[in-house]
Structure formats: C-alpha cells, structure tokens
C-alpha cells in the first residue's frame, strides 16, 4: 500500500537505535530482534515521531542529502519496509 502523504508515521516503542559509522543497528527489545539499516533508513526512522507527515520526511531527507528534489518514492518505499519490519505504525 502506498504511503499516504498526510499520514504521520510513528516509531514503535522499545527500539534501541545504535548509530554506527556506516549505518544503524536497531534492537527491538520486546521481539529480541535486530535490524540493520543504512543511514538514510535510520534517518527516516528517527523522523517517524508522529509529528512529521510523509511529504515532510521526504523534504527533510532531500535537504539532508542535498538532493534537487525530495525523494518521495524512495521515502515511501523505505516507510513500507520499516512498516513491514514492524518498526513503525
């Protein structure tokens, strides 16, 4: 399902986010599960605080990486992946 641009995704509780030099390691305490993300997916996850709408996330990611256009499709795919992993709702 495509991400609704006016939705504000929220990280699930109980995530331990470990920032590495070249990516992010997430430990989901309740499921005792570990996830490996690149920095961009880690940034998107961090921004999923319920206060940013999807299109705002794309704008922030685009600005952070100096992109000419907000990467709407990439962020939507990333959110889908994070949701599939049950890291956001």
């Amino acid at each position: 399902m495509p991400e609704l641009t006016d939705a504000s995704p929220v990280r699930v509780e109980g995530l331990e986010i470990n920032i590495m030099h070249d990516g992010v390691v997430i430990y989901q305490h309740d499921r005792k599960k570990i996830h490996y993300l690149n920095h961009t997916a880690g940034l998107v996850l961090e921004l999923c605080d319920g206060r940013h709408k999807v299109e705002e996330l794309a704008a922030i990611v685009g600005k952070t990486y100096g992109l000419p256009q907000p990467p709407h499709d990439d962020v939507a795919n990333c959110l889908q992946d994070l949701r599939a992993r049950e890291l956001i709702r």
Partner: peptide, 24 residues
C-alpha cells in the same frame, strides 16, 4: 561496521544476566 556487527553477533551469545544494553 554494520556488516561486522551482523557477522559477529551470529557467533555470540547474550549475557546470562539478560542486561538490556548488551546490543548497544
């Protein structure tokens, strides 16, 4: 680093005490 975490964790066991910050 992320790849090494993935590889070495597969050869590791958590602390017997179950302390919560072990992955960090």
């Amino acid at each position: 680093k992320v790849e090494m975490v993935r590889r070495v964790l597969a050869q590791s066991s958590p602390p017997s005490s179950g302390r919560e910050d072990w992955v960090a």
